[in-house]
Design a protein around this nucleic acid. Structure first.
Lengths: 360, 360
DNA sequence: TAGGGTGACTAAACCGGTTCAGTTCTCCGG
DNA sequence: CCGGAGAACTGAACCGGTTTAGTCACCCTA
């Protein structure tokens, strides 16, 4: 009859017995609650340490009705997210806050708004998360009401267009767009187009509005606009349409990098010299943009910081703190080689022919 | 004294009382266990449905010692992941299996191997997940032993180079590389370079080995190799070095798309005409590659299917099933415009000058 | 010296499931 | 007609924490 070593991790009861107290007192000591004498607390913590005891998240979860986890639901087409450098950096920012706090991130990637709502409901009803980060805000976004209904805490990325019970963590990308327009206008461009994201997405709309505002301020016409779904495919299609215009723009401001890169390809395939025949700018700063020929002038946002700020705000909110809106450093224009003065400031008709051996 | 409506969700006890049975029996009925008569089971399930009862994941978690969640730990630099279209599609594939199964995905993004190990330990000790998907396998990967030690179930993406207790879910990317080399050789290329990922990563190494093998089979020299970290930056640097060779290659096979795109930019900036002076191929098939000028010949892997297969294999494994290795459809070459016959098959010295108005 | 207040601590209920040891009832064979 | 097996079901322990009500010793005050 040999001694069987107990392989299981110690529980609060092991600690209590070893310290000669009740398990309730161990719980008090651990959670810094009053009613424990200083020396007893010390002894308990020492024993806990000695035994290598870590309280079970599951048990705490059941008794405190908390998940100790945050949720992020992404509802965009994976192919579009794939081109977007935002989320990996953003998530790594979240993670850097969560890991030290002993919290976890539950990620859900779905397609379509119904699946999105279902996902939120599932996270809530399964008690998987205590709060959610609401990204890619849409106009009149139903997720605000949904999160309230589900009694989830939440922070929004950007400020909603409707009354919101949740703190917003914001980056002023309007500044980046304004700088972009100013940069192009200073170079001498007057016909500037904007290829934007879906207007139903607030940041898509905001960038478009900022574009128009900046154009008007300069006395330039603000109506060469095309709305897309943020995909490279639609960015390419939009570019083709713009280049086919009789009085075509000399510069295009894209709302993200994948579209700008696709647009660059389309322009080059049409025989245009970028930036001499056409200036191009992106948004969100992908790594690869800097290595294109020409390298891409873009607006860099600080996705990682955004993730950190959102996660820590949400944790504080869940802890019952009052959390105010947070404004992060504005997005910054990075000027590289895809922008230059238009070929001829006065007469723009010396441009290269639009059509040329296109394939596909 | 008014009646206070009970806002909380029903528990198993509510169901039991309403059905006139003990809560144990409700549990049996729910889990399809023997010992419940057909009509009683029916009644219980009806009552459960009527009350809208869903068993609490937390409570089940505590009593069954299961998390009902899977973990994915990504240990690459976020900037590198950002350029890689693989993970979003992969994750969406995972999700499509998990959501209907009532399981969740816990995602962790860290930098460095120590942080990676810490993350696995935390997931395990907090009981956050029942199993993990091990991606980006490395040579002699310590995570296999770690997962065993932590008593986590696991599946690996690709076959490890050491004995593994876990099922592998594999895509034969060797086929894609072989096809790529065959395609280039058929076009008449003889000096073909390979810009690969880190050799410590098995898929980086595998692609390189496949490249060398395919080259040797054709009787071509297989030693123009550069190893990188998969980043656009190193892809660009590698390209610059290759172009500076006295007898420079007429084609470059890159191990992922971001490097190929960066390489394309470098070549063009050096005044080369791609594909006439230099053919270029990518790997993994980013969305944007198809819109570049020239559009990028690449190898498309089915990331989404990979995610589905890995998740469902892992769920079955956790359920105690025996799971065999799974081989998915091999990666397929997609020929677009970035590959063409070399300018001159016999004498290659009519190439354009390397240096030209470079900025940055 | 009784009464009241306070600090330290314990016992037990509780969170919402699962599981196991029994209990009851029915049916069947000898 | 009795004994035993098996099906259907119950009651309670259990998972590992938190929380509340209550006990006890001690000190201070009138």
């Amino acid at each position: 009859m040999s001694f069987v070593p107990k392989s299981d991790r110690p529980t609060i009861l092991d600690v209590a017995r070893r310290a000669g107290v009740s398990k309730g007192l161990v719980s008090f000591a651990l959670n810094d609650r009053p009613g424990v004498s200083a020396e007893t607390r010390k002894r308990i913590l020492e024993v806990a340490d000695e035994l290598g005891w870590r309280p079970s998240v599951r048990a705490r979860s059941l008794s405190t009705d908390r998940a100790f986890a945050l949720g992020l639901v992404l509802a965009r087409d994976p192919d579009i997210i794939a081109g977007d450098p935002f989320f990996p950096s953003f998530i790594s920012g979240i993670e850097s806050v969560l890991a030290p706090a002993g919290q976890a991130l539950v990620l859900s990637m779905v397609e379509g708004e119904e699946a999105e709502a279902r996902s939120y409901r599932q996270l809530a009803s399964h008690g998987r998360v205590d709060g959610v980060i609401i990204s890619d805000l849409r106009a009149n976004d139903s997720r605000l009401a949904l999160a309230s209904e589900l009694e989830l805490s939440a922070v929004t990325l950007g400020r909603p267009d409707i009354a919101s019970p949740f703190p917003a963590v914001t980056v002023d990308d309007a500044a980046g767009i304004r700088d972009t327009v100013a940069h192009l206008a200073d170079l001498g461009h007057t016909r500037i187009a904007h290829v934007g994201g879906p207007a139903v997405m607030l940041h898509g709309r905001r960038r478009r509005d900022s574009f128009q505002e900046a154009m008007r301020e300069r006395g330039l016409s603000d109506d060469i606009l095309i709305e897309t779904d943020f995909s490279a495919a639609e960015g390419a299609a939009a570019t083709a349409r713009l280049l086919a215009l009789t009085d075509r723009p000399t510069a295009i401001v894209y709302s993200n990098d994948p579209m700008a890169i696709a647009g660059l390809g389309v322009a080059q395939r049409a025989g245009l010299d970028v930036p001499r025949d056409l200036s191009i700018t992106g948004f969100d700063g992908s790594d690869v943009g800097g290595y294109l020929h020409p390298s891409l002038t873009t607006v860099k946002t600080t996705a990682r910081k955004w993730g950190e700020a959102a996660a820590s705000a949400l944790l504080r909110l869940i802890d019952g703190e009052q959390v105010a809106d947070i404004d992060l450093d504005p997005a910054a224009l990075v000027v590289l080689d895809s922008t230059a003065p238009p070929r001829s400031t006065t007469s723009g008709n010396a441009a290269a022919p639009i059509h040329e051996g296109e394939r596909t």
